[in-house]
Nucleic acid binder design. Structure first.
Lengths: 183, 183, 183, 183
DNA sequence: AATGAATGAGTGTTCATTCAT
DNA sequence: TATGAATGAACACTCATTCAT
C-alpha cells in the first residue's frame, strides 16, 4: 500500500454509499464497506472513527452529489412543458433513478431516528425546494416536493408502472396556479 | 409463565410492532421482541419460525389495525370541509400519529428490499386509495395518497411544524377538481 | 390419530434408521425423526424417553435387520466359488449396499464412545463371524470379517472402484487355507 | 492474552484435534475448541472462517503428523519378522494408539458424508499403501491396508483383547506371498 | 500512516426435554 | 394415550471496536 493514498477516503465513501443502497443504513458494516472498496478492514476504521460517522459522511457525500445532479436536471428547462417533462421523468425514471431514490428514503427514515442526520435532510429539502421554487414560487415548491416524494415511493413499490399520463396529470395539477411563462 | 397461554402469539406480535416502531425493521431482533413481550426467547422462535416471518406478520398485523383506523377517520365526513379537516389532522397530527407514520415508512422501505412484503404494501395502498376514492374518485385519490405520504414524511422530519395553512392549501389544491358536495 | 397405533413405534424406528444413515448418529434429532416418520414431535419423545434410547434402539433394530439379511446372502452358497462371489458382491455392491455399510461404520464409531452400544457391536460381530465360520472355521472367519470391514470402507471412499479382480484376489487369499468342499 | 500470538493458530489446531478425538467430528464446536486451547471464542472464529474449515484443517494437520509417524514405525524394519512385529504392534498397541486410530475412523466416516474431506483420505490411503508397498509390493499393500483397518477397528471395540497370536496369524497370511527377504 | 490480530457482545436459530391438557 | 406448547441452553457465526506493531 502506498503511504499516502488521498483517494482512499473517497473510495471508502463511494463504497459506503453503494452498501447503503444495497443493504440499507442498518445493513451497513465496516466489513461490507471494506470489501466493496477493496480495502483492508483496518483502513475503514482508521479513516472513520465510528460506523455512525462513516454512515453520516456517506449520506452527506451522497446528498452533495444528488443535489448537484438534481440541479442539473433543470438546466434546460424553459417552458412549463419542459418542467413537467423533467418531473415526470424524475418519477417514472427507470432503474437508474431507483438507486438514488432508495437512498433518499433510506436517509429520511434514518433521520427519523437519528437527529444527527436531521441537519442533512433539512438542507436537502431546502435545496430541493429552492430549485423547484425558481419555477414555481416557494409555496408551490413545498407541495410539489412532497408530491414528488410520494409519487416516487409509489412508483418504486408498484409492480406495474403507473401510466405516464396519470403522473403527468398529478404534477400538472400541483403546478396549476403556476404561471409566468406567458403561455 | 403458565404453560398454556393462548394470548402468547398476539402478545408477541404486539411487542414486535412496538420494536418495529422503536428500532426499525432492521433493528428488530428476537431478543428485543421477547423482552418487550416479557416472554422467554424460545417462545418467540417457537411461535414464529423465522425472524422474517415474525417481521412480516408484525407488519401485516399493523396494517390491519391501521387500515381499520384509517377508515374510522372518515366515518363522520360529510362535507368537503370535513374531509380537508381530517386530512390536515392526518398530516399534522401530533406524536400519536408519529408512531404509525414511522411504521408506514418503515414498511415501505422494507418492501423495497423484500418482495415478500410487496403484497402487503400493495394491499395497503389499494385500501387507502379506496377509502379516499369514496370522496374524490379514483383518479384524485391516487394523487392525494401520494401527496399525503410526502407531506407526512416532511412533517415528521421538520424541526418546526409546517404552518397548518400551508398543509391545508396543498390538500385543497389536490382536491380542487372534486365537486359533488353541492358547494 | 387413532388411539392405539402399534405401528407407530416401528414407524419411528424406521425413520430413525433413515436419519442415522443420512445425518449420522450425532446428526439425529427428535425433530428430524418426527418429520421423517410423519409423526408429531411429542410422539417421538413419548415413545422413547430420551434421544440416546431412541438412537440405541434404532441401531439395534438396524442390526437385527442387517443380521438377517447377511445370513440370507449365504443361503445359496454351496461351493467355495459361490462364497467368493458373494463376498466380492458384498464389497463391491453398489449404492444399495452403501446405506447399510455407512450405518455399520456409524455404529462402530458411536460404540467407540458410548459403551452402551458396545453390546450391540459385539453381538453383531459374533453373529457375522458365526455365519462366515460355517464356511471357513472360526479362525479364518475372524480375519475375513476384519478384511471385509476394511475393504468395504475403502470401496466406499474410493472415487473410482477398485478393480473387481483385486477384491477377489484379496478374499481368495484370506480364504486360502479353507478347504473341505472337496474341490 | 498478548495481542500478537503467532502460535495461536497452531494452538487452536492442536486443540481441535483433541476435540476431534474426544467428541468426534460432529461433536466439535467452536466453544469446545476455544476452551481446550484456552483462547477466547472469537479467536477461533477469527482464525478459521467456518467450523467446516477448522475441521478440515484439523484433520489435515492430524494426517500430516500421522503419516510421518506411520513412516517412522517402519524405519528399523529389515526382516519379514520385523515387519510382522511392527504390524502386530500397530493393531494391538495400547491406549496410546487408540487416540490416533479413533481419529482415523472419524476422518473416514466424515469423508463419507463430506466430499471436501475425500482428498485427504485418498492421500492418506495412498501414502500408507506406499509405505507398506516398499515391503510387500503394491498389490499386497492394498489388501494389507484394508486388513489393518478392520483389525484395528475390531481391536478397539473388543472388550477383551484378541489374542496376539490370532492377529499375528492374520497378518502373516496376508503377507504370505511376500518373499524376497531370503528367508 | 496504516493494518492484521484480537475479542466480547450479540445475532438467528436449533434443540432435548418438560409439562398441561 | 398422545401431543401442542413451552423454555433454557447451546450452537455457528458476525460485528464494532481496540490495539500492537
Amino acid at each position: 500500500m502506498c503511504r499516502h493514498d488521498p483517494q482512499r477516503r473517497w473510495r471508502i465513501l463511494d463504497a459506503a454509499v453503494d452498501v447503503l443502497v444495497t443493504d440499507g443504513a442498518a445493513g451497513m458494516t465496516h466489513r461490507k464497506v471494506a470489501a466493496r472498496a477493496d480495502v483492508p478492514l483496518g483502513s475503514v476504521t482508521y479513516h472513520f472513527s465510528s460506523l455512525a460517522e462513516l454512515q453520516e459522511q456517506a449520506f452527506a457525500w451522497y446528498v452533495e452529489q444528488q443535489t448537484a445532479q438534481f440541479e442539473d436536471l433543470f438546466t434546460g428547462v424553459e417552458t412549463r412543458e419542459d418542467l413537467v417533462e423533467v418531473l415526470v421523468e424524475l418519477v417514472q425514471g427507470g432503474p437508474s433513478r431507483r438507486r438514488s431514490a432508495v437512498l433518499g428514503f433510506e436517509l429520511h427514515l434514518a433521520a427519523l431516528r437519528d437527529p444527527a442526520l436531521r441537519a442533512l435532510t433539512q438542507k436537502w429539502t431546502r435545496d430541493s425546494r429552492a430549485v423547484l421554487a425558481r419555477f414555481t414560487g416557494p409555496e408551490i415548491a413545498g407541495r410539489l416536493d412532497a408530491l414528488l416524494e410520494g409519487l416516487i415511493m409509489h412508483a418504486l413499490l408498484a409492480t406495474e408502472p403507473e401510466p405516464r399520463e396519470a403522473t403527468r396529470a398529478a404534477l400538472v395539477q400541483a403546478l396549476a396556479p403556476v404561471t409566468g411563462w406567458g403561455e
